[in-house]
């Protein structure tokens, strides 16, 4: 029985992590036209409780993508330098959409496992109801 409750919390941690990831993706997309914006990257990692792995997943520190910023030609822009270029953001929309799809797919998988564990424990309770 405790295994099933553990299942619920593991799946919940997965869903939490995936929705946080989606939150970062939407932040990147929203800022895709902000001059000088660097894409935010998050990696998943194992959750440790007092040095022991709990099996739950959580988001690690946010890092900034160090790729070169896109140079945009617009002499009328306030940030444009002498040659008429300014630094755009290094967000690639296609990559962000792909990332969002992957997050959605993983979220659904977690949700399915969660639902299954819930059904299994209610079947167990059904034994008591007789």
């Amino acid at each position: 029985m405790s295994d099933l409750f553990q299942t619920l919390s593991l799946s919940a941690s997965g869903m939490r992590a995936q929705s946080m990831r989606l939150r970062h993706v939407s932040e990147n997309i929203a800022n895709s036209d902000t001059p000088g914006y660097r894409r935010k990257l998050v990696a998943f990692e194992d959750t440790l409780k007092q040095g022991v792995s709990t099996g739950e997943v959580s988001l690690g520190d946010v890092t900034l993508d160090q790729r070169e910023l896109k140079r945009v030609f617009d002499p009328g822009h306030t940030l444009a330098d002498g040659s008429g270029y300014y630094d755009g953001s290094n967000v690639d929309l296609v990559v962000e959409i792909a990332d969002a799809r992957e997050a959605q797919r993983s979220y659904e998988a977690n949700l399915k496992i969660f639902d299954q564990a819930r059904q299994m424990s209610s079947a167990l309770f059904e034994l008591l109801r007789r």
């Binding site: 295994d3 593991l10 997965g14 194992d46 977690n110």
Partner: peptide, 17 residues
């Protein structure tokens, strides 16, 4: 039950490097 917990762990960590 124990196997389901392991599966849940795998799915939760499906994107952990």
């Amino acid at each position: 039950g124990a196997r389901q917990a392991t599966i849940a762990q795998n799915v939760a960590q499906a994107d952990t490097p």
